[in-house]
Protein backbone atom coordinates (compact mmCIF):
# COMPACT_ATOMS: atom_id res chain seq x y z
CA UNK A 1 0.00 0.00 0.00
CA UNK A 2 1.50 3.39 -0.93
CA UNK A 3 2.38 5.82 1.88
CA UNK A 4 -0.28 8.54 2.18
CA UNK A 5 0.95 11.94 1.00
CA UNK A 6 -0.24 13.60 4.19
CA UNK A 7 -0.53 12.06 7.64
CA UNK A 8 -1.68 14.15 10.60
CA UNK A 9 -1.98 12.52 14.00
CA UNK A 10 -3.48 14.24 17.02
CA UNK A 11 -2.31 17.72 16.08
CA UNK A 12 -2.83 20.36 18.75
CA UNK A 13 -2.27 24.10 18.65
CA UNK A 14 -3.34 26.76 21.12
CA UNK A 15 -3.19 30.55 20.81
CA UNK A 16 -2.98 31.41 24.49
CA UNK A 17 -6.13 30.03 26.05
CA UNK A 18 -7.84 29.48 22.67
CA UNK A 19 -7.62 25.90 21.47
CA UNK A 20 -7.42 26.39 17.70
CA UNK A 21 -6.69 22.79 16.69
CA UNK A 22 -7.76 19.99 19.00
CA UNK A 23 -6.24 16.56 18.41
CA UNK A 24 -7.11 16.30 14.74
CA UNK A 25 -6.01 13.24 12.76
CA UNK A 26 -6.45 12.41 9.09
CA UNK A 27 -4.63 11.00 6.09
CA UNK A 28 -4.63 12.11 2.47
CA UNK A 29 -3.82 9.57 -0.23
CA UNK A 30 -1.41 10.27 -3.04
CA UNK A 31 -3.15 11.92 -6.00
CA UNK A 32 -6.24 12.77 -3.99
CA UNK A 33 -8.01 16.12 -3.89
CA UNK A 34 -8.83 16.57 -0.22
CA UNK A 35 -11.20 19.29 0.88
CA UNK A 36 -10.73 20.85 4.30
CA UNK A 37 -13.97 22.65 5.01
CA UNK A 38 -15.17 24.80 7.83
CA UNK A 39 -16.23 28.29 8.86
CA UNK A 40 -13.78 31.07 9.66
CA UNK A 41 -11.96 30.36 12.91
CA UNK A 42 -12.51 26.60 12.69
CA UNK A 43 -8.74 25.96 12.65
CA UNK A 44 -8.22 25.41 8.91
CA UNK A 45 -5.41 27.94 8.43
CA UNK A 46 -3.64 26.87 11.62
CA UNK A 47 -3.68 23.26 10.42
CA UNK A 48 -2.31 24.28 7.01
CA UNK A 49 0.39 26.36 8.68
CA UNK A 50 1.46 23.33 10.68
CA UNK A 51 1.38 20.99 7.70
CA UNK A 52 3.42 23.39 5.57
CA UNK A 53 6.08 23.86 8.23
CA UNK A 54 5.21 27.44 9.12
CA UNK A 55 4.08 26.61 12.62
CA UNK A 56 5.28 24.02 15.10
CA UNK A 57 2.42 21.99 16.62
CA UNK A 58 2.34 21.89 20.39
CA UNK A 59 1.71 18.17 20.20
CA UNK A 60 1.03 15.54 17.60
CA UNK A 61 2.83 14.14 14.59
CA UNK A 62 2.64 14.99 10.91
CA UNK A 63 4.38 13.77 7.79
CA UNK A 64 4.23 14.95 4.22
CA UNK A 65 5.44 12.44 1.61
CA UNK A 66 6.82 10.40 4.49
CA UNK A 67 8.94 13.29 5.83
CA UNK A 68 8.48 14.54 9.38
CA UNK A 69 7.42 18.17 8.90
CA UNK A 70 8.42 19.35 12.36
CA UNK A 71 11.93 17.94 12.02
CA UNK A 72 12.60 18.68 8.36
CA UNK A 73 10.39 21.60 7.31
CA UNK A 74 12.71 22.72 4.50
CA UNK A 75 12.83 19.22 2.97
CA UNK A 76 9.05 19.22 2.95
CA UNK A 77 8.78 22.76 1.61
CA UNK A 78 11.02 21.86 -1.32
CA UNK A 79 8.34 19.41 -2.48
CA UNK A 80 5.13 21.29 -1.81
CA UNK A 81 3.40 24.30 -3.32
CA UNK A 82 1.31 26.69 -1.27
CA UNK A 83 -1.24 29.19 -2.51
CA UNK A 84 -2.26 31.52 0.29
CA UNK A 85 -5.68 33.01 0.83
CA UNK A 86 -4.39 36.57 0.95
CA UNK A 87 -2.29 37.95 -1.88
CA UNK A 88 1.40 38.03 -1.04
CA UNK A 89 3.15 38.79 -4.30
CA UNK A 90 5.97 41.24 -4.93
CA UNK A 91 3.78 44.00 -6.34
CA UNK A 92 6.56 46.12 -7.80
CA UNK A 93 7.88 43.17 -9.79
CA UNK A 94 6.29 41.76 -12.92
CA UNK A 95 4.35 38.51 -12.91
CA UNK A 96 7.17 36.69 -14.70
CA UNK A 97 9.78 38.13 -12.31
CA UNK A 98 7.75 36.85 -9.36
CA UNK A 99 7.68 33.37 -10.85
CA UNK A 100 11.38 33.41 -11.77
CA UNK A 101 12.33 34.49 -8.25
CA UNK A 102 10.51 31.57 -6.67
CA UNK A 103 11.70 29.13 -9.33
CA UNK A 104 15.30 30.09 -8.45
CA UNK A 105 14.61 29.70 -4.73
CA UNK A 106 13.26 26.22 -5.43
CA UNK A 107 16.33 25.51 -7.55
CA UNK A 108 14.27 24.87 -10.70
CA UNK A 109 16.41 24.73 -13.82
CA UNK A 110 15.13 25.69 -17.29
CA UNK A 111 11.99 27.28 -15.92
CA UNK A 112 9.40 28.42 -18.46
CA UNK A 113 7.41 31.26 -16.89
CA UNK A 114 5.41 31.91 -20.07
CA UNK A 115 4.09 28.36 -20.17
CA UNK A 116 2.98 28.56 -16.55
CA UNK A 117 1.38 31.96 -17.08
CA UNK A 118 -0.46 30.53 -20.09
CA UNK A 119 -1.80 27.68 -17.93
CA UNK A 120 -3.45 30.12 -15.55
CA UNK A 121 -4.72 32.40 -18.29
CA UNK A 122 -2.16 35.18 -17.85
CA UNK A 123 -0.40 34.83 -21.19
CA UNK A 124 0.76 38.18 -22.49
CA UNK A 125 0.66 39.79 -19.03
CA UNK A 126 3.92 38.37 -17.68
CA UNK A 127 5.89 41.58 -18.17
CA UNK A 128 3.29 43.77 -16.45
CA UNK A 129 3.87 44.81 -12.87
CA UNK A 130 1.70 42.89 -10.41
CA UNK A 131 0.43 46.12 -8.84
CA UNK A 132 -1.54 46.66 -12.07
CA UNK A 133 -3.23 43.24 -11.95
CA UNK A 134 -6.87 42.72 -11.00
CA UNK A 135 -7.72 40.56 -7.97
CA UNK A 136 -8.48 37.58 -10.20
CA UNK A 137 -5.19 37.94 -12.06
CA UNK A 138 -3.26 38.14 -8.80
CA UNK A 139 -4.98 35.02 -7.52
CA UNK A 140 -4.15 33.18 -10.74
CA UNK A 141 -0.53 34.30 -10.40
CA UNK A 142 -0.53 33.02 -6.81
CA UNK A 143 -1.66 29.62 -8.07
CA UNK A 144 1.02 29.72 -10.79
CA UNK A 145 3.65 30.55 -8.16
CA UNK A 146 2.57 27.53 -6.12
CA UNK A 147 3.29 25.38 -9.18
CA UNK A 148 6.81 26.59 -10.07
CA UNK A 149 8.46 23.54 -8.50
CA UNK A 150 5.91 21.02 -9.85
CA UNK A 151 4.94 20.14 -6.27
CA UNK A 152 4.01 16.66 -5.14
CA UNK A 153 1.55 18.17 -2.69
CA UNK A 154 -0.33 21.37 -3.42
CA UNK A 155 -1.93 23.37 -0.60
CA UNK A 156 -4.57 25.80 -1.79
CA UNK A 157 -6.20 28.13 0.72
CA UNK A 158 -9.49 29.57 -0.59
CA UNK A 159 -8.06 29.80 -4.12
CA UNK A 160 -11.26 31.01 -5.79
CA UNK A 161 -12.76 33.21 -3.08
CA UNK A 162 -14.18 36.44 -4.43
CA UNK A 163 -13.16 35.69 -8.00
CA UNK A 164 -15.16 36.18 -11.17
CA UNK A 165 -16.49 32.94 -12.73
CA UNK A 166 -13.83 32.90 -15.46
CA UNK A 167 -10.92 33.22 -13.01
CA UNK A 168 -12.49 30.66 -10.67
CA UNK A 169 -12.98 28.20 -13.51
CA UNK A 170 -9.37 28.69 -14.68
CA UNK A 171 -8.13 27.81 -11.20
CA UNK A 172 -10.42 24.76 -10.94
CA UNK A 173 -9.06 23.54 -14.25
CA UNK A 174 -5.51 23.87 -12.96
CA UNK A 175 -6.44 21.88 -9.83
CA UNK A 176 -7.79 19.05 -11.97
CA UNK A 177 -4.70 19.15 -14.20
CA UNK A 178 -2.47 18.91 -11.15
CA UNK A 179 -4.38 15.89 -9.92
CA UNK A 180 -4.03 14.33 -13.38
CA UNK A 181 -0.27 14.94 -13.15
CA UNK A 182 -0.25 12.93 -9.94
CA UNK A 183 -0.11 15.71 -7.35
CA UNK A 184 -2.03 15.55 -4.11
CA UNK A 185 -4.20 18.61 -3.54
CA UNK A 186 -5.15 19.89 -0.10
CA UNK A 187 -7.95 22.37 -0.69
CA UNK A 188 -9.03 24.63 2.14
CA UNK A 189 -12.32 26.34 1.48
CA UNK A 190 -15.69 27.25 2.83
CA UNK A 191 -17.18 27.08 -0.66
CA UNK A 192 -19.08 23.81 -0.34
CA UNK A 193 -20.17 23.82 -3.95
CA UNK A 194 -16.56 23.99 -5.11
CA UNK A 195 -15.56 21.25 -2.69
CA UNK A 196 -18.38 19.08 -3.98
CA UNK A 197 -17.24 19.60 -7.58
CA UNK A 198 -13.52 19.02 -7.00
CA UNK A 199 -12.85 16.91 -3.96
CA UNK A 200 -12.49 13.17 -3.70
CA UNK A 201 -12.95 13.43 0.06
CA UNK A 202 -13.79 16.25 2.42
CA UNK A 203 -13.24 16.84 6.11
CA UNK A 204 -15.58 19.13 8.06
CA UNK A 205 -13.71 21.12 10.66
CA UNK A 206 -15.57 22.83 13.48
CA UNK A 207 -14.07 24.47 16.56
CA UNK A 208 -10.72 22.81 15.97
CA UNK A 209 -11.98 19.25 15.55
CA UNK A 210 -12.92 17.14 12.54
CA UNK A 211 -16.62 16.38 12.84
CA UNK A 212 -16.99 14.40 9.59
CA UNK A 213 -14.65 13.01 6.96
CA UNK A 214 -15.65 11.07 3.83
CA UNK A 215 -16.45 11.39 0.15
CA UNK A 216 -19.07 14.02 -0.65
CA UNK A 217 -21.32 11.25 -2.01
CA UNK A 218 -21.12 9.19 1.18
CA UNK A 219 -21.69 12.21 3.38
CA UNK A 220 -24.78 13.11 1.39
CA UNK A 221 -26.07 9.57 1.65
CA UNK A 222 -25.31 9.41 5.33
CA UNK A 223 -26.56 12.80 6.44
CA UNK A 224 -28.51 14.36 3.56
CA UNK A 225 -32.14 14.03 2.50
CA UNK A 226 -33.07 13.82 -1.16
CA UNK A 227 -35.99 16.02 -2.19
CA UNK A 228 -38.35 16.47 -5.15
CA UNK A 229 -39.29 20.05 -5.91
CA UNK A 230 -42.53 20.42 -7.88
CA UNK A 231 -44.19 23.52 -9.31
CA UNK A 232 -47.95 23.17 -9.88
CA UNK A 233 -50.52 25.46 -11.48
CA UNK A 234 -53.10 26.63 -8.91
CA UNK A 235 -56.78 27.21 -9.90
CA UNK A 236 -56.19 30.99 -9.82
CA UNK A 237 -53.41 30.59 -12.39
CA UNK A 238 -50.47 31.19 -10.01
CA UNK A 239 -47.50 28.83 -9.60
CA UNK A 240 -47.23 27.00 -6.29
CA UNK A 241 -44.22 25.08 -5.00
CA UNK A 242 -44.38 21.65 -3.35
CA UNK A 243 -41.55 19.73 -1.65
CA UNK A 244 -41.58 15.95 -1.27
CA UNK A 245 -38.93 14.09 0.67
CA UNK A 246 -37.51 11.05 -1.10
CA UNK A 247 -36.44 7.78 0.57
CA UNK A 248 -39.52 7.61 2.81
CA UNK A 249 -42.15 4.87 2.82
CA UNK A 250 -44.98 7.10 1.68
CA UNK A 251 -42.97 8.95 -0.99
CA UNK A 252 -44.30 6.94 -4.02
CA UNK A 253 -47.93 7.48 -2.96
CA UNK A 254 -47.32 11.17 -2.33
CA UNK A 255 -45.74 11.65 -5.79
CA UNK A 256 -48.54 9.66 -7.50
CA UNK A 257 -51.21 11.74 -5.76
CA UNK A 258 -49.54 14.95 -6.80
CA UNK A 259 -49.25 13.89 -10.46
CA UNK A 260 -52.88 12.75 -10.59
CA UNK A 261 -54.47 15.59 -8.61
CA UNK A 262 -52.49 18.64 -9.66
CA UNK A 263 -51.36 20.22 -12.92
CA UNK A 264 -47.58 19.78 -12.66
CA UNK A 265 -45.54 22.47 -14.44
CA UNK A 266 -41.98 21.51 -13.37
CA UNK A 267 -40.57 18.64 -11.37
CA UNK A 268 -36.96 18.03 -10.37
CA UNK A 269 -35.09 16.09 -7.73
CA UNK A 270 -32.29 17.53 -5.60
CA UNK A 271 -29.87 16.03 -3.13
CA UNK A 272 -28.64 17.76 -0.01
CA UNK A 273 -25.69 20.08 -0.41
CA UNK A 274 -22.53 19.78 1.66
CA UNK A 275 -23.58 23.00 3.35
CA UNK A 276 -26.88 21.42 4.42
CA UNK A 277 -24.93 18.50 5.84
CA UNK A 278 -22.47 20.77 7.62
CA UNK A 279 -25.35 22.64 9.25
CA UNK A 280 -26.99 19.39 10.22
CA UNK A 281 -23.79 18.06 11.83
CA UNK A 282 -22.60 21.21 13.56
CA UNK A 283 -25.86 23.05 14.08
CA UNK A 284 -24.43 26.19 12.49
CA UNK A 285 -23.62 27.52 9.04
CA UNK A 286 -20.32 28.19 7.37
CA UNK A 287 -20.68 31.93 7.62
CA UNK A 288 -20.66 31.86 11.44
Amino acid sequence: MPIPSIIAEKLVYRYGSLLAVDQISFQVASGEIFGFLGPNGAGKSTTVKMLTGQLLPQSGQMTILGIDVARHPKRVQARIGVCFELTNLYETMSGAENLHLFARLFGVRSFDADALLRRVGLDGRGKDKVEGYSKGMKQRLMVARALVNQPDVLFLDEPTEGLDPTSAQAIRNVIREEQARGATVFLTTHDMHEADMLCDRVAFLDRGTIVALDTPHTLKQQYGERMVYVEVLAPDGSLQRREIMLDRADTPAEVAALLQGEQVVTLHSAEATLEDIFIRITGRGLAS
Binding site: Q54, V82, N88, G107
Partner: peptide
Protein backbone atom coordinates in the same frame (compact mmCIF):
# COMPACT_ATOMS: atom_id res chain seq x y z
CA UNK B 1 5.36 34.18 4.50
CA UNK B 2 5.68 33.25 0.83
CA UNK B 3 9.47 33.05 1.20
CA UNK B 4 9.11 31.02 4.38
CA UNK B 5 7.53 28.08 2.57
CA UNK B 6 10.33 27.86 -0.02
CA UNK B 7 13.58 26.01 0.64
CA UNK B 8 15.09 29.41 1.58
Amino acid sequence: TALAITPA
